[in-house]
Design a binder for these strands. Structure first.
Length: 773
DNA sequence: TCACTCACTTAGTAACCTAACG
DNA sequence: CGTTAGGTTACTAAGTGAGTGA
């Protein structure tokens, strides 16, 4: 405590003497003076300037990874089908991937269709041939050439705007407005979103309204002059869309199917392309339709009109040998190119941020698969360097050069907290940060060594953590916030992602900040999986697996917003638990009646659960009774229906009513019983029962159920804000999941959805139960 | 060096689908 | 068998990082 004031002394040596201390500080500042200039203005030489092994206790740097244990490595052997792509360059840059060879040769070389599990037998024979290509068994090229031949059918444009019926109008100041269709379309975009959060956001409203007015003006204006957003009433439009939605929902099933089949047929040609002669699935062949930009967080441009994309803005990339897809009638492509160094099939520029959009292949394609594979191999390689890296940055936390200290501290955060690199962002984007762009206000301190990080990261997702950090990190962060700095200033003013990444390349080619996230995520997963005992039911193993997955998701701060239904369903489970406890309590009281001696022995056991207050019990009884009533009513109806179905004569409504009333009497009795029981404080059970032994058994069962249900509730709560899928898709090496599946005998279908099984086919077919990250 | 462009991965959520439920 | 809760897929925004050129 008392020395907390000392905390802003950066170096380890502290002094009690104020004056001296002051001097000390100044001295330090002068130590740093050379790179006092923040990064942006700095001259180049400042960078390499100091040789930093002057640091006191620095142990020798051992960065070159020790003679990588040369795992005898199954497949350098070129394999079966070498296709056009494979140019001589086999795995060149990846020489270091030695310890992580291209996926070991799978058992069944032939490329026979592996397991009939998911391709339904009826699929065409020819397809088998094509899909049998197992790129992960083929030689890897360096990836700079993506294809040699490429053919596809281009992109699908959204349908043209369909004007609203005459009677559906924007009302302005209570008067219907005749809008030119261009403007009507834009107004309709807003109208359709009327009930969303976006439509309530003032920035969204403002941006929308500005663009709407612009469009309106350009189209010649309306019969009414429109100047104030507040006077616009979009309800007609909203209701119209809503009605249409319901109408659509009510289309009979068969009809729905027909429509869908028709649509699928129309889209089929766009879905596939041929890459080096092999059929591949295209990911997003649809040109993004016009609408209002839904920027996340407080994006300054949210609500702006995202304009309709015309063929004239779309560039096509295709093999020179292939037939160029026809642009829509009367239109031309912006350009047609034949660039085999990129993987996109089409591109255009979006009008709001000027960002480039691409049409890529689907996640299950060979191109995506290969780069995914490479990503994980790179991350695996990091394990050979991580010790040296950690050792270095720990030492450099005390480096006398500010740049190095900042860099080391940033590396600590990236490594330990899995922060993103954090590149610079513009005025016209949401204000979010990552490691390098952390600012003064994002970090606070709780002595002796707890750092509170609170900032908005990617997608404006909040990162909040109070973490105990290394003492030196604590000191450094304080130092980086020191005096001249104020709110709004960057903590790491000498550091940016490019310089950090440049440093990282020294350890390992291709190493960048983001690799740490992949590495630590997969490493965490592996460590978690190791702890799972290999026993129990599949379901239990699933729970354990998901818990491991969740640890990773938490590490990566993958969140989701709680669903609207969440609270409700939690309430239901809570009631369920209460009801179990209530019933258990009743049984206990019965037991006490039967065998009073037990109560004497263990009075605590017979105590009422504190949450079972009188009110709660009343409510539970109510709940039970209404439920029983509903059951009875439904049962009568159902029985009647069955009768009718069997050709018997059904009951009249009156008869049904009568029948129901009859049967409800039993429920009324039940209700009476509960009431009486309660009156006697549950000392006189209405329906008296079994032997004490039986009762005890039942009580035990209920206790178990209470525990299980409570666990289930906890699981639900824990999961409510955590998104598991993101880490599963992007960070956890799929071979870990495959390993788990095989080792623990959990069907892969339980761990990967259909699309994920396709995306991770390479992993499923190459990893075994002993695979390690 | 710096600002900007380009390509590609990562991200949450809306829309859709499906299996459990009552 | 219709509803609905929950899982899956589609969508597209928002990152990272390499490259480029002045």
């Amino acid at each position: 405590m008392s020395d907390s004031s000392n905390d802003d002394i950066p170096l380890s040596q502290r002094t009690q003497d104020k004056r001296k201390r002051k001097l000390k500080v100044e001295k330090e500042e002068s130590d740093f003076s050379e790179d006092e200039v923040p990064l942006k203005k700095r001259g180049k030489k400042a960078k390499e300037a100091v040789i930093r092994n002057t640091v006191k206790s620095a142990p020798a740097i051992k960065k070159q990874k020790s003679e990588t244990k040369v795992v005898p490595h199954p497949s350098t052997a070129p394999s079966i089908k070498t296709n056009g792509t494979t140019n001589g360059k086999a795995m060149k840059a990846e020489s270091d991937l030695n310890s992580a060879p291209a996926v070991s040769l799978a058992k069944k070389k032939g490329g026979k269709k592996s397991s009939a599990t998911d391709d339904e037998g009826k699929t065409e024979q020819e397809q088998e041939e094509e899909e049998a290509y197992r790129w992960w068994e083929a030689e890897q090229n360096d990836g700079s050439i993506k294809w040699t031949t490429l053919s596809h059918k281009g992109v699908l444009f959204p349908p043209p705007y369909e004007p609203l019926p005459k009677h559906v109008k924007l009302q302005y100041d209570g008067k219907p407005v005749d809008l030119p269709i261009e403007a009507e379309e834009v107004a309709g975009f807003f109208g359709a979103m009327l009930e969303t959060e976006h439509a309530k956001n003032p920035v969204f409203q403002k941006n929308f309204f500005e663009d709407f007015k612009t469009v309106l003006k350009k189209a010649g204006g309306a019969n009414v002059e429109i100047t104030k957003f507040e006077k616009c009433d979009f309800n007609d439009m909203f209701n119209y869309f809503e009605a249409k939605r319901i109408e659509k929902k009510n289309i009979p099933n068969a009809e729905k199917k027909r429509i869908k089949a028709e649509k699928d047929k129309l889209e089929e040609m766009y879905k596939i392309c041929y890459l080096d002669g092999r059929k591949e699935v295209v990911g997003n062949f649809r040109i993004e339709p016009p609408g209002l930009f839904r920027g996340r967080g407080s994006h300054p441009k949210t609500g702006k009109l995202k304009a309709r994309v015309m063929p004239e803005q779309v560039t096509i990339n295709i093999g020179a040998e292939a037939e160029v897809p026809q642009p829509p009638d009367g239109h031309k492509w912006a350009e047609v190119k034949h660039d085999s160094t990129v993987s996109w099939l089409a591109t255009w520029k979006e009008n709001i941020n000027g960002a480039t959009k691409y049409v890529f292949l689907a996640a299950n394609s060979s191109l995506k698969g290969m780069s995914d594979f490479k990503k994980f191999e790179k991350a695996r390689q990091l394990k050979n360097h991580i010790d040296a890296i950690r050792e270095d940055y720990r030492r450099e936390l005390k480096d006398e050069k500010m740049v190095n200290r900042q860099r080391a501290t940033a590396m600590y955060l990236i490594d330990v907290l899995a922060l993103r690199a954090g590149g610079e962002k513009g005025e016209d984007e949401a204000d979010t940060v990552g490691c390098c762009s952390l600012r003064y206000e994002h970090v606070t301190f709780k002595p002796p060594n707890i750092v509170v990080l609170d900032f908005l990261g990617k997608d404006s997702i909040r990162f909040y953590q109070e973490v105990k950090v290394d003492n030196q990190v604590y000191k450094n962060l304080k130092l980086f916030k020191r005096d001249p700095k104020r709110e709004g200033d960057e903590l790491f003013d000498r550091l940016d992602p490019p310089s950090l990444n440049k440093h990282l390349q020294n350890y390992m080619p291709g190493l960048t900040a983001k690799v740490f996230r992949t590495y630590n995520a997969s490493k965490t997963m592996q460590d978690q999986l190791k702890k799972i005992p290999n026993r129990g039911t599949v379901n239990e193993k699933m729970v354990a697996f998901n818990a491991a997955n969740r640890a990773v998701a938490i590490l990566c701060n993958h969140q989701r917003t709680v669903s609207k239904s969440h609270e409700q369903s939690v309430g239901k489970i809570e009631d369920k638990i209460l009801e179990i406890k209530f019933q258990r309590f009743r049984l206990k009281m019965q037991l006490a009646q039967l065998d009073p001696s037990m109560k004497k022995k263990d009075p605590a056991f017979f105590e009422r659960d504190p949450e079972l207050t009188d009110e709660v019990i009343d409510r539970l009884i109510d709940l039970i009774i209404t439920r029983e009533r509903e059951k009875v009513t439904k049962k009568v109806l159902k029985e009647n229906e069955k009768k009718v179905a069997d050709g018997e004569k059904g009951l009249s409504e009156k008869e049904i009513e009568k029948e129901t009333r009859e049967k409800l009497k039993a429920v009324d009795e039940l209700a009476e019983g509960y009431k009486k029981e309660k009156k006697s404080d549950f000392k006189k059970p209405v329906v008296s029962v079994a032997s004490p032994e039986k009762l005890q058994q039942q009580i035990e069962k209920l206790s178990e159920r209470a525990i299980n249900t409570t666990l289930q509730l906890k699981d639900k709560e824990d999961n409510s804000t955590v998104a598991l899928t993101t880490s599963k898709i992007n960070y956890i090496d799929p071979r870990l999941t495959v390993m788990f599946s095989k080792k623990f005998n959990v069907p892969i279908e339980k761990l990967f959805s259909k699309t994920l099984r396709e995306k991770f086919k390479w992993a499923i077919e190459s990893a075994d139960e002993n695979w390690t990250f």
